[in-house]
Write a protein that binds this DNA or RNA. Structure first.
Lengths: 347, 347
DNA sequence: TTGATATATGGAATTAGTTCCACATTTTTC
DNA sequence: GAAAAATGTGGAACTAATTCCATATATCAA
């Protein structure tokens, strides 16, 4: 077994001091100016780099945050990671990533791996919280934060899907729409599949009896939405709401191909506020989520806990931004949204 | 200092064997069936988990791959990571991520951090290779692979930007276009800013003297491309080629707002093959890059090196896929692309 | 019945740091 | 000027694993 080139012992010998003194130099302990200089020189000359594992073995701190994500190639996840990294990096923490591939089982396994790995904290962008998730948050001695899903027994942070849905529902009601199709995803995703949809229905139907919402199930991607669009056409609502912008984009594409004019003949809206919603035509009206902010909040929370500040998460839900663009017709005033000449809501 | 709950020593005592025997049980060494059972029981009873740091200190293997990325919130990077993870995960490796924020200095710093951290290998999606990059690849005793940029002195893997540009140039030439605008990015990005552009010019002008390519510089995002679109309109070429799909999308949006018909009045094409290019209308003709495959290749290479197989990277350049969609007019046959009724090139 | 080999096992050393403790100075206080 | 406090320093123990080496059986061939 080849050994490390330069150890603290070599530095100590070269500097004519003890290992302890070098260690103290490295960790801001008692050390005289004279020896300080000697040690510094010795470190420079040898190019000494302290051994990560030896250090961590004793200090029991890895400066590593474990992150479990449902997938890697998604705008949402990218933004989230971006926010997390922005907060963690200046504090000297690094993130180690595992992917759950949208599977609850793999999510739990990944958490286990990270814990064994000795990470200081775990952040899980969950696809669904189970009793096991709760148990771990309680039994493992390290901070765990869940995002994306909600459960009062654990610390979590998420988009308020019910409120987002409600916001959209109210908006469309006020725009005079009475018959909507909600193109949503499987109910096994509680946040998007249930909360968002029910929030929408509540907001849309509130205080009236002549409103009607029909449900069409699709996947999360363009293509599956595109493939369901024909069915939606048959229903012929005045507005179709995609549970995500991707879904709306697929539908928009289908309408374009069939020559169905949006929003003149039918309105379309979505959720997410992805950048691309601003470049398609008509630009997509949507409820925007700030995943980057969510990442920053999540990371800050974990950092606070690690500092022993015993922080509590207030404001569990993240702010929403309603982005009114061109894809929804105002049936009350009988006007179409202005064809914007700039891209104000590019986010 | 609180200590670990259960160590290998506790297991050994409970099982009535020595530490060495437990260690051998854990690492497939000599052990009798009888003791094997005892140790297994003791581990089950105690819930023993081996200490990551102690293990790594001795074995000098972290099973961690360091990855440096220019940014997190980009489709390209997401796909790349996706590919990397797909290969690394089944082999028991995990990735630790650092972000260079498109800065060469931060990229080098990040590499340094990862090396100190004791990762087994480093993969850098570089924003530009310097002499220092080369020096490290040679001097550090661990495998380093660069992607995104090319330098013969180090191991690297990248899109063949010149070939991609050339491919597009040839295609547009064959479609009868003579006057093009190349909406590109800064030349400080050698791959995209120079190679892709020059490849295009070569392919477009090849074997004729009546071809003309003008250059307009934009940023990497929709908005900056959108803002340059007016200038492009003034030039009035028969086709405008965005250096990335994002750029083309911004331009497409501008044309839509001005009522400029694509591809009837002007053709548009791009590079990247992002999913969204398929949902806009007209769907964007583009040269698609398979970043996920690149990630898989990169990870496989590093894994091979770590296995001591001393692999050499053949096929440094990644395959390209020409995706012909709707945004380019055939000036020779005077036809427009069929308005596809399905989304064949959704990738 | 040896001697040689294979199979198990435990003890001790090793890995590269940090930290506690004892002790030696030096400085401050009364 | 002596006692007390502050400041440095080195030695040894400690962290939790792996691994080398010596040794003890068991198995097998001559």
């Amino acid at each position: 077994m080849e050994q490390q080139k330069v150890t603290i012992k070599d530095v100590a010998e070269l500097a004519g001091v003890s290992k302890s003194t070098v260690s103290r130099y490295l960790n801001n302990g008692y050390i005289s100016a004279e020896k300080q200089a000697k040690v510094r020189k010795a470190i420079e000359k040898t190019g000494f780099q302290s051994n990560f594992f030896a250090k961590r073995l004793k200090t029991r701190e890895s400066k590593l945050i474990g992150i479990v994500l449902p997938r890697m190639d998604s705008v949402t996840v990218g933004k989230l990671l971006s926010g997390i990294t922005r907060v963690l990096e200046p504090e000297g923490y690094q993130s180690i990533l595992l992917v759950s591939q949208l599977s609850q089982k793999k999510e739990l396994e990944s958490m286990q791996k990270l814990q064994q790995q000795g990470v200081d904290a775990i952040l899980v962008d969950s696809v669904g919280l189970t009793a096991e998730h709760v148990r771990r948050a309680q039994e493992w001695g390290l901070p765990i934060l869940y995002t994306g899903q909600k459960n009062s027994a654990v610390q979590c942070l998420k988009i308020d899907d019910a409120a987002a849905g409600h916001l959209m529902g109210v908006y469309l009601r006020q725009m005079g729409h009475k018959h909507a199709v909600f193109a949503g995803v499987t109910e096994s995703d509680e946040a998007v599949g249930i909360e968002r949809k029910e929030g929408f229905m509540a907001g849309f139907c509130e205080g009236r009896t002549d409103a009607k919402v029909e449900f069409v199930e699709t996947g999360f991607d363009f293509l599956s939405a595109y493939n369901q669009a024909e069915e939606i056409c048959k229903i012929a609502p005045s507005v179709v709401v995609g549970a995500t912008d991707n879904i709306s984009l697929g539908i928009l594409r289908y309408f374009h191909e069939r020559g169905v004019k949006v929003p003149e003949e039918i309105s379309v809206a979505g959720f997410g506020g992805y950048d691309v919603g601003a470049v398609v035509y008509p630009a997509l009206t949507t409820v925007a989520f700030d995943y980057e902010l969510m990442g920053m909040k999540a990371a800050s929370y974990l950092l606070n806990i690690l500092r022993g500040e015993d922080a509590k998460l207030t404001n569990l839900d993240m702010p929403l931004l309603f982005v009114e663009r061109e894809s929804v017709q105002d049936l009350v005033k009988k006007t179409f949204p202005a064809n914007t000449t700039s891209l104000p809501s590019m986010m």
